[in-house]
Simulated scan of single mutants.
Amino acid sequence: MEVIVTDPAAVSALAVRELRAADIDWSTEEDDLATAVEELRVDLANSLAGVVDISRLADGIPGVEFRGGLCWAEQAPARDPFRTMG
């Protein structure tokens, strides 16, 4: 699956809102809320990975059950989906 982000600021803003709303005990973390927010604002791939829930891709589709998968986000130019790997 390939996703094109058309509004990076909106993605980062959502990731920041969800981080702020999360019940995180920052005293047990390596960084603090302000640092984590800044990291999300400057790293679109990290923000996207934080808000996408691949386990919900099949929600609402009768007869389909999500069993697991691997997903990551990276910043790169759009790829030609019909190009053969070689």
Results as ranks from 00 to 15, higher is better:
E2R: 13
E2D: 14
E2Y: 13
V3P: 01
I4E: 15
I4W: 14
I4L: 15
V5G: 06
V5T: 08
P8I: 13
A9R: 14
A9C: 10
A10D: 14
S12N: 04
A13S: 07
A13H: 06
A15Y: 07
R17D: 15
L19M: 14
L19H: 06
L19P: 03
L19A: 04
R20P: 05
R20G: 06
A21N: 13
I24Q: 04
D25E: 14
W26P: 03
T28N: 07
E29Q: 15
E29H: 14
E30V: 12
D31P: 00
L33Y: 03
L33P: 00
A34C: 05
V37S: 08
L40I: 03
L40E: 02
L40W: 06
V42Q: 09
V42R: 09
D43Y: 09
L44T: 07
N46L: 10
L48K: 05
L48P: 01
L48A: 14
A49M: 06
G50F: 11
G50K: 09
V52Q: 02
D53L: 03
D53G: 01
D53P: 00
S55W: 06
R56D: 10
L57G: 09
A58L: 12
I61Y: 08
I61F: 08
P62C: 06
G63K: 06
E65C: 01
F66W: 15
F66N: 03
F66S: 02
G68W: 13
G68Y: 12
G68K: 08
G68I: 12
W72L: 11
E74G: 10
Q75K: 01
Q75T: 07
A76M: 11
P77K: 02
P77T: 01
A78M: 10
R79M: 06
P81E: 05
P81Q: 10
P81Y: 08
P81S: 04
P81I: 09
P81F: 08
F82M: 09
M85T: 11
